[in-house]
Amino acid sequence: MNLFRLLGDLAHLASIFILLHKIQTTRSCRGISFKTQALYVLVFLTRYVDLFFHWVSLYNFVMKIFFIASSCYILYLMKYRFRPTHDPSLDTFKIEYLLGPCFVLALIFNYHFELAEVLWAFSIYLEAVAIFPQLFMLQRTGEAEAITTHYLAALGVYRALYIPNWIYRYFTEGVVDPIAVVAGIVQTGLYLDFFYVYFTKVLQGQKFELPA
């Protein structure tokens, strides 16, 4: 564990708490893509099958359980509790376009051709692009509540911080994980546009609005 990864994980935790806070206080999941949230559940379930056979640490264990539980809980809130506040007509990204290619990529590029490893690779690829339906929705509406943008920013910061973590691990431990690194760089890259608007508008106290 190093500081970059710890801060990255904390940013990931923060993003989940911000999202829960947004849903609970506004009693609405307006502006949040159900599809993206559903993809995160799938990401966690496929990545953390190793919970059953590979012990890493108590930290790792607790975080995995938390990510699975919280993502399922968010899905429950969106699907049942605050269902009327979700507008499916805005959440129209076709996730088949993400699931299919990620699955094929996982079959081709994995570390071992076995179920757990293919699922792991699938989860890495899927996580990289899972934000697409959310960004697509943002693009369609052209604006977002500040709290929603804080959620997205924390999520972007989480993956961005994993990059210095990998560089640090390369120099201190001599290990590289090409699948995670490539997918992680792509994933972070997807946030660049968002970050630009976030830093130049939201953090200056303006409304998050995309140029027409």
């Binding site: 990864r5 994980d9 990931h12 190793d50 590979h54 890493v56 640490s57 790792n60 975080m63 995995k64 990510f67 570390y111 071992h112 490893e117 792991w120 994993y162 691990r169 431990e173 290990v175 590289v176 994980d177 699948i179 995670a180």
Partner: peptide, 10 residues
């Protein structure tokens, strides 16, 4: 085993 790093990250 080339994947020691893989499964200790979240």
């Amino acid at each position: 085993e080339g994947n020691a790093i893989l499964h200790d990250e979240l």
